[in-house]
């Protein structure tokens, strides 16, 4: 059939490979510029050496930092996705719209305020820190899971139902896979918030790299402050990059607008 062959040619020269090239070229370019700036800075200043005197602190507090993020982010994904999925079920339709409105209001509350309230309720330490970060991370995940599942086209659900899938099969084989990209988007935003807020938990006594930053600012000790700020920034950028790559590779090609 001639139509089939012409279309196959079209598909083969589809810009997937070209897009991949640009999507990898841009970051490389940006990072080259940054690396260049850092190289110049290192060669002109003795600051890096001073920062490195905090090496042990960086490793210890960095570990703590990552642990806090892993706990709160992990818990937020493990709770947020099921909550969003539950709210998207027709049975909850009435409640969910109102609840989502509430969540939207909740999402405007600054993380520092959430941590402060968490501290008032639970005191200081790791538990209120993880709880506060979890609360701040949760909303985007719930919201995107809900929106992603609700955005699955009705005709796909009708086709699935008409072919004899049970409601559970429809959810696992059709709805969830097709919402995956949007859910991943929510996880990415949420983890960025989580990593970005993590330095603040030092304020409620949970340690982390924030300790170096806040203490450095308070003592006007620049190397100490940078010893916290640079790894924090790097961790945030690396986390975002990693989740972005995971989204690229884990979401199947058929529903991944990036591929």
């Amino acid at each position: 059939m001639s139509e089939a062959t012409t279309a196959s040619v079209q598909v083969q020269k589809s810009p997937a490979s070209a897009r991949w090239v640009t999507s990898i070229r841009t970051p490389v370019l940006v990072w080259l510029v940054i690396a260049l700036a850092v190289a110049i800075w290192i060669s002109l200043s003795d600051m890096p050496a001073e920062i490195l005197t905090y090496r042990e602190d960086i490793i210890y507090l960095g570990g703590q930092h990552v642990e806090l993020v892993a706990w709160s982010g992990g818990l937020a994904i493990l709770t947020g996705v099921p909550i969003g999925a539950l709210l998207s079920r027709p049975a909850f339709q009435r409640v969910s719209e109102a609840l989502l409105q509430g969540f939207n209001v909740g999402a405007t509350i600054p993380t520092l305020a959430i941590l402060a309230l968490s501290m008032t309720l639970l005191g200081i330490g790791t538990v209120p820190a993880v709880f506060g970060l979890w609360a701040a991370t949760l909303l985007p995940i719930v919201r995107n899971t809900y929106a992603g599942l609700r955005a699955v086209p009705q005709h796909l659900i009708e086709a699935a139902c008409g072919m004899g899938m049970t409601p559970a099969q429809m959810f696992w084989r059709v709805e969830l896979p097709n919402a995956l990209f949007v859910i991943f988007g929510g996880v990415r935003t949420a983890l960025a918030i989580c990593v970005g807020s993590a330095p603040l938990v030092f304020l409620i006594g949970a340690g982390g790299l924030g300790e170096l930053i806040f203490t450095g600012i308070a003592l006007d000790e620049l190397p100490m402050m940078l010893a916290g700020a640079i790894p924090t920034a790097l961790l945030a950028v690396v986390t975002d990059f990693t989740v972005g790559r995971l989204q690229y590779y884990l979401v199947p090609r058929g529903i991944n607008p990036l591929r």
Partner: peptide, 12 residues
Amino acid sequence: YVIQQIGLFPNK
């Protein structure tokens, strides 16, 4: 069962 919107599952 065939529907007008075809309803092919984009994830498969």
